[in-house]
Computed example of a mutant assay.
Amino acid sequence: MTELENELRKRAKKFRAVKSFIEEEPVMTMEGWLETRQRGAARRYYYCVYDRDQGKTVRKYLRKDQQGLAKKLAQKAYYGKIQSSINRCLPLMEELSRRIDEEDLDKLYDDLPDVRKELIQPVMMTKKDRLAQWMDEAYSPNPMPKSSRAIMTKLGESVRSKSEKILADFFHDARVPYKYECPLRLRDGRILYPDFTFLDSRTLEEVYWEHFGLMDDVDYMNRALEKMKLYGRSGYRLGERLLVSFESNEVYIDFDLIRQTVEERLKWPE
């Protein structure tokens, strides 16, 4: 059910963003509504307001020079329909997502005692098995220049900077499986080597982490921005399947933010 879970989360996130956008739109605070009438090719627009003192709706004809008001009222009505649809659908989507989480088929097998696991053939590959398979997949990392000074991580990997070592060791200590500089083929066929690649425990999609460590160097910064453009053009959105961290000579890595990101996005259940 991973694809369904992933789609539900994406759709719910989009709905919440649209709902928040509409709620901030100035037209939503306007009083009244629009009525339209058409006879043949002639169209007439009316600004309608309910008059509580008179106990009835008061309609005012909108002249051609008042078309701006008609557009705002029409936009308000459109937004209102979107709001109503989201308000109906979003609770259902969130409830379904919660139910799916509760009925985790992987957990039904993982929670069995070993003595029973030995007797059972799971109906599908569990997420933990998929993670193990992913970690076993061979890959060719970006070759290190021979002149580079070896900087070793706790896992015995050679990395390109002290910051990458700090990050790699942080992920290792947090028990977050990763691949260092695993090649990623973009839509245009170009190959990038993200600093770190992870497998999302919820979606089983790969998530990429780039660390940009010399952001006070203008040439380096421009190359970093171009690289983020390449990711974006291949559908890897910042904050979704692309995560980044930055530093410069005067601005250090924000480890509180990194720790939060690991807990929210990358941590696998024990």
Rank of each mutant, 00 (worst) to 15 (best):
Y79P: 01
D110K: 10
K71Y: 05
E103L: 15
S85K: 14
P113D: 10
L119C: 11
K72F: 02
E102D: 06
L69A: 08
R99A: 01
Q75W: 08
M93A: 09
K71C: 06
L105E: 14
L108V: 12
L69F: 00
Q66E: 07
S85V: 11
K117G: 11
D114L: 05
R98N: 10
R98E: 05
D114W: 00
L69S: 03
D101S: 13
V115N: 11
L73T: 01
S85N: 03
D111G: 05
E95V: 04
Q75A: 15
I86V: 01
P91Y: 03
L108F: 13
L90Y: 07
V115K: 08
E103A: 14
K117M: 00
R98Y: 02
E118T: 13
Y79F: 14
L119W: 06
L69P: 00
I120G: 06
R63I: 09
S97I: 06
I120K: 09
G80C: 03
K117L: 05
G68K: 10
E118F: 01
Q67V: 04
S84Y: 02
S84R: 15
L73R: 02
G68T: 12
R116L: 14
Q75I: 13
D110I: 12
I120H: 08
L105Y: 13
C89P: 00
D110T: 13
S97M: 11
K117T: 06
D106E: 03
G68I: 04
Q83G: 07
L119V: 08
R88V: 12
L112A: 09
K76G: 04
Q83K: 14
L108S: 09
D114G: 05
L62Y: 00
P113K: 01
V115A: 10
A70T: 03
Y109H: 13
D106R: 08
I100C: 08
S84M: 02
D106W: 08
R116V: 12
D106L: 13
G68W: 08
R63H: 11
L92E: 12
D101Q: 15
N87F: 05
S97K: 07
E94R: 06
K107R: 15
Y109G: 09
I100M: 10
R98M: 03
K71E: 10
Q83M: 13
D114Y: 02
A77M: 13
L73V: 08
I82P: 02
K72G: 00
L73E: 00
Q67S: 12
L90K: 08
K71G: 00
N87T: 09
C89L: 15
A74R: 00
A77Y: 02
K64A: 12
S84C: 07
D114P: 05
Y79N: 13
Q75Y: 10
L108D: 05
L62V: 07
L90C: 04
R116D: 11
L62M: 07
A77T: 07
Q66W: 01
L112G: 10
R116P: 03
I100L: 14
Q66A: 08
Q67C: 07
Y109S: 10
D106Q: 04
L105V: 14
S85F: 14
